[in-house]
């Protein structure tokens, strides 16, 4: 798709907006509709758009596949780690009330952290899966 200049210009304009929107959804999920799952998917779709328009190899240069694999694991670890942190601070597993002085603030902190973990995992899972599907098509067909 190297020669579709309209697509390239429009997507250049759109991709930062989509990513910004993803971050908004990520951190505004407490107040309106949204949260880690949606934000991760939106972020991943911005990236997939980039990869579709500007070729998969360019995208791979921007974010190499190993970064995504690290993100995949670290998001999950962040989630579980918040649970363990609550455990160490004397609460139950995944009980956020002990994370801060006020229970409600602790809950807020915990929710923000685990939503972030969810978002990272979902986004990197989607991008990893997309990379893998895309890299299948560029290899020589063996039949």
């Amino acid at each position: 798709m190297k020669f579709k200049s309209i697509l390239r210009v429009i997507s250049k304009l759109l991709i930062p907006a989509i990513m910004l929107f993803a971050l908004y959804v990520q951190f505004h999920g407490d107040f309106g509709p949204g949260g880690g799952f949606q934000a991760g998917v939106i972020f991943a779709s911005a990236f997939i758009l980039y990869a579709l328009i500007f070729d998969i190899d360019t995208a791979r240069k921007v974010v190499p596949a190993w970064v995504m694999r690290v993100g995949l694991a670290s998001g999950l670890l962040l989630y579980a780690g918040v649970g363990v942190a609550g455990l160490l601070l004397g609460g139950k597993y995944l009980d956020y009330s002990v994370l801060a002085d006020e229970p409600v603030q602790g809950q807020h902190l915990g929710i923000t952290l685990i939503e972030f973990g969810v978002g990272v995992t979902v986004a990197s899972a989607m991008i990893t899966i997309f990379y893998l599907f895309a890299s299948q098509s560029e290899r020589p067909a063996d039949r």
Binding site: G35, F37, G40, V41, V122, A125, M126, I129, L132, F133, Q136, D142
Partner: peptide, 23 residues
């Protein structure tokens, strides 16, 4: 909400299996 996202992840797994079967 969670089921939808899990659903697409498992769909991706199924499609990956389809690709391998085709191989």
């Amino acid at each position: 909400l969670t089921a939808i996202v899990v659903g697409v992840a498992t769909t991706a797994l199924a499609l990956a299996l389809v690709v391998r079967i085709r191989d």
